[in-house]
Amino acid sequence: MSTGKSLEAPAQQQPQPSGSPKAGGRFKRLLTTENLMLAPAITVLASITIFPFLYLIYASLMDFALAMDDPTFAGLRNWVRLFKDPAIAQSWKVTLIYAVVGLGLEVIIGVGVALLLYATPWGRNIFVTLWMLPIFVAPVVAGLLGWFMLNSSYGLYAWVLQLVGINTDIFGNVATALPAVILIDVWEWTPLITLIVLSGLQSLPSEPLEAAEVDGASYWQKLRYVILPLSARIIVVAMLIRSMDIMRFIDTIFITTAGGPADSTKIIGLRLFEVAFRFMDIGYAAAIGLSMLFVTILLGQAFVKVMYGR
């Protein structure tokens, strides 16, 4: 408590003339051992998060393009544009589909595989290792891999799809591009869900499960009434991690479709990238970035509520 006080106090004192003896005393109190020891960490934290965050707010209020000489004050122009821009709305829509469908599939498959592995009496580690392989692939490589496999001229999967009568350029078709990038995401990130959920399952207390068996529960009843409720929290954690990840994800889509065709795969992260580094409109990009941060915080809060509100 006292540390908090001594941190606040000098801030209040700052407007006062610096020569006042009172302010000097406060400053001395600030230089306690614990504050001095905290200082490096706080400085680093401030320089890598707080300063950029404040700068982002500043940039979002400026007419700020890399090509121009000096940023000029723009007021809320970037923010107004953000809410009126149909391209942004389209990107949020794509992001929503990408997140809901992708995360939904990842959770269903990931939890299912985790339950299978949990019930496997032997060789679990080998299966886990094999199943985890996609995580170790860099997202860019995963994107390249998907692009090769689904390439309409020489892709293996494309060839298989052609055999069953699907003759289209997967990444070039508005109807198939988004499902394709979602499936690549599912391929790469489902194992992460499995890993998190499996570790949660393995740390479940064995006694309630045994009690359920003795109480007369079949496997499915045990799953429905005991295992899933007890591991709900860890599943929510996995979803939280993945959903925040999806928000800022661009790598795979950048490689495979670059957001096309016709913006059908341009999720908000990719839109931000484009505004910032292709159109060089840093002010507008800052506003988009802050709006993404806002949505991510809301999402995180919602998950935390679900987790602890039970």
Binding site: E207, E210, A211
Partner: peptide, 28 residues
């Protein structure tokens, strides 16, 4: 175990943490 018609009391109680007392007792 479910077919043996036995009931067991465990050392660590082994209650279902997410159910209230009534549901714990009613589960079987």
């Amino acid at each position: 175990p479910k077919d043996r018609d036995i009931a067991m009391v465990f050392q660590n109680y082994a209650l279902y943490p997410h159910m209230n007392v009534y549901d714990n007792m009613a589960f079987g």
